[in-house]
């Protein structure tokens, strides 16, 4: 394989019939609804913009402190602050479409009924490229247990979202790594009608502020993100792509460079998301895209689709 010119690399990718110009997206919760980042780069240059999770009603989120910096990462406990679906559809989604972005709308809810309502409202809004289903929320109808941690409950969410989303609009389930077997959850949500998977959400963590001798976050625990979690995310993508060959996977967790992105693709992801790195570098998504192009060119890989799963012995050869 000879070296290619970066501009000759074909970055287009297909995720469950969604054709994207390139495989780089923002990660939910790290890009709001695109507008703030558009001050630094053109949101239309990304494969897709994944919105912060939208809930049915407006939410204030949690008390502060909501964030604590940790080694190569951070903990957050925002509590899904957001304007609610009405304001999102009235303001944020039209803005994304006006700026030629491909919106993937993340939805979150605390009951099956709310998930269904969100699926209908988002699904019937023109211009949405796909729905990402955030299932890392407590289920108020089941003792506050997190949907993502139980294959049965996770599957129920995806089946109601599938039922109420128009045919042809893909739905992707975002999985939590805080489970015994992520392949088991993946199998359950795919059987329930998901078109693909997003891996991984944050890991539950804790930090203690010694001056106050109290947990650093007002919410006590929070979600760990950033480069610190990349090996966990890669492992999840690797495991699920072996357990469920052919299932579209969007890799996310600690991606900071084009080399990181290529690792996820080589582990089996068809697209990737850049999250916490945005806080460090607002241009991180477009920088990762440029670096990914260069990483592929250097290795003589003409199409990003040829790199998907390349690190698996059965795909990559002996």
């Amino acid at each position: 394989m000879g070296r290619l010119r970066p501009e000759d690399v074909d970055l287009s990718t297909v995720l469950a019939d969604v054709h994207l110009d390139n495989p780089v997206m923002t990660a939910s919760g790290c890009a709001a609804a695109g507008r703030e980042l558009h001050q630094f780069f053109d949101v239309a240059d990304l494969g897709a913009v994944v919105t912060k999770s939208i809930m049915r009603d407006a939410r204030s989120g949690r008390a502060t402190p909501r964030m604590s910096e940790t080694a190569s990462g951070m903990l957050n406990s925002i509590g899904l602050q957001g304007p609610g679906i009405d304001a999102f559809l009235a303001t944020d989604l039209p803005w994304l479409l006006r700026h030629d972005a491909r919106p993937i709308v993340s939805i979150a809810a605390s009951s099956l009924g709310e998930y269904a309502e969100l699926a209908r409202r988002v699904g019937n809004s023109p211009g949405v490229a796909a729905i990402e289903v955030n299932i890392s929320c407590p289920n108020v109808e089941d003792r506050g247990l997190v949907f993502a941690c139980d294959p049965l409950q996770a599957g129920r969410v995806l089946s109601v979202v599938r039922r109420d989303t128009p045919r042809g609009l893909p739905i992707f389930a975002k999985l939590s790594p805080d489970v015994t077997s992520i392949a088991e959850i993946a199998t359950a949500v795919m059987a329930a009608g998901a078109d693909g998977l997003v891996m991984i959400n944050t890991l539950l963590g804790l930090d203690i502020q010694l001056d106050r001798m109290r947990p650093a976050l007002a919410g006590v625990t929070g979600g760990l993100s950033g480069p610190a979690i990349k090996p966990v995310a890669l492992r999840a993508v690797w495991e699920v792509s072996r357990a469920l060959p052919g299932v579209p996977i969007i890799g996310v967790g600690g991606i900071r460079t084009g080399a990181d992105a290529l690792q996820f693709i080589a582990a089996g992801a068809s697209a990737i998301q850049v999250g916490t790195a945005i806080f460090n570098d607002p241009c991180a998504p477009v920088r990762v895209l440029k670096e990914l192009r260069e990483e592929l060119a250097t290795r003589g890989i003409a199409k990003v689709s040829e790199a998907i799963g390349l690190a698996h012995p059965s795909i990559g050869g002996s």
Partner: peptide, 16 residues
Amino acid sequence: EEDMACGIGVCMTCVL
């Protein structure tokens, strides 16, 4: 003065 992670309005940590 509030602790910020990004400074540009996307992280939602510096609220009051």
